[in-house]
């Protein structure tokens, strides 16, 4: 395997509990993952599973009471956590770019589209206003904004949600980053527009030879667009592997439950969808053992004692479940 573009090792992110003796919230616990150049990795999980926080911590953008307690984030061999402020700023938007969830509010309402798309170019490439705007036109055309040159002077409210997300993509790819992080890029969009945006993302990152981390809770998106998948639960990765293999044969009980809860075209109609019983764990009071144990149908004593670690298996797959370590499959 080639040298990974991004390697996260044993990342711990916590949020301070505030005044008094409120416990710390463990948003991410000993997270390790790798992204190869040009690869699309999907991070899947429900709300509060730590997927967005993991993504934000790569660019060191975790909001205030949060802090990275442990771990290393190596990007092209360089530890991002060891960089000073100017160092990390020269990475943001330049070598690693990010797209946010809400296209409606991620563009500044009082600046023209042209200025905003030109902004990373001016910051990182030191281009003049005119040069940056000329390049901005090309970038807007590459994300299929019609009449791009004429729309440079328009403001965000004159664009639809899908168009704004296209603008965000143009902005994110302006400096040809090696890695693009898309945090639920299509959640706020119509289903038809979702597909267009994802196609565009995939196509543009392939052309630019950028890797893509796609954060989502939509398993349909994952199946179609991701090369590899990492499933998160309670701040940990519980299973990872190539998308096709993971779909065909999910190993962790949580992944199995997730896949069972997706409606399917084949099979009987009118039946109830399966669901995973119980509630997601409270990150301020994680159990001593496996975070999924209270909801897992296969729980045994060992699961309650200590959390299982992510064990690698054949076919570059890995999962964290005691049931699979020994011979006894549940």
């Amino acid at each position: 395997m080639t040298e990974p573009l991004l390697r996260i090792e044993n990342l711990d992110v916590t949020f301070r509990g505030g005044f008094g003796n409120r416990p710390k919230v463990r948003a991410v616990t000993s997270l390790s993952l790798e992204v190869a150049p040009g690869e699309t990795l999907a991070i899947v999980g429900e709300s509060g599973s730590g997927k967005s926080v993991s993504a934000l911590s790569i660019l060191r953008l975790i909001p205030d009471p949060g802090q990275i307690e442990n771990g290393r984030i190596l990007f092209e061999g360089q530890d991002l956590l060891a960089l000073d402020d100017a160092g990390i700023r020269s990475v943001r938007g330049n070598r690693i770019a990010m797209i946010f969830q809400e296209p409606m509010s991620s563009l500044n309402p009082v600046l023209t589209i042209g200025r905003q798309v030109a902004e990373p170019l001016r910051l990182h490439r030191g281009l003049s206003r005119r040069e940056a705007l000329e390049q901005a036109v090309e970038h807007l055309e590459s994300v299929a904004i019609p009449d791009a040159a004429k729309r440079l002077g328009d403001y965000p409210h004159q664009f639809s949600g899908g168009m704004r997300q296209r603008v965000m993509i143009a902005m994110a790819l302006a400096c040809h980053p090696r890695l693009l992080i898309a945090d639920e890029p299509t959640t706020a969009l119509d289903v038809t527009v979702q597909a267009q945006i994802l196609e565009l993302l995939k196509e543009r990152t392939r052309e630019a030879d950028s890797a893509l981390i796609l954060i989502t809770h939509d398993l349909g998106v994952v199946a179609r667009y991701a090369d590899r998948v990492a499933v998160m639960y309670g701040g940990r990765i519980v299973e990872s592997g190539p998308a096709a293999a993971l779909y065909a044969d999910p190993r962790h009980p949580y992944t199995q439950g997730l896949l069972r809860s997706v409606p399917r075209l084949e099979g009987e109609c009118g039946g109830r969808l399966d669901s995973i019983e119980g509630q997601p764990p409270d990150l301020a009071a994680l159990p001593a053992g496996c975070a999924f144990a209270p909801r897992c149908p296969y729980t045994h004593d060992r699961c309650l004692a200590a959390p299982p670690s992510l064990e690698a298996a054949a076919g570059s797959r890995a999962w964290a479940c005691y049931g699979y370590e020994g011979e006894s499959a549940p």
């Binding site: 938007g93 990010m98 500044n108 994110a172």
Partner: peptide, 26 residues
């Protein structure tokens, strides 16, 4: 707290730049 302020950080803008270009006009 608007996303565009975080977005400005994510493209590598410094504090002064964000204050002048993104916060003040708004």
């Amino acid at each position: 707290e608007h996303v565009y302020t975080h977005a400005a950080q994510s493209i590598g803008a410094g504090t002064f730049h964000i204050l002048r270009r993104h916060i003040l006009p708004n």
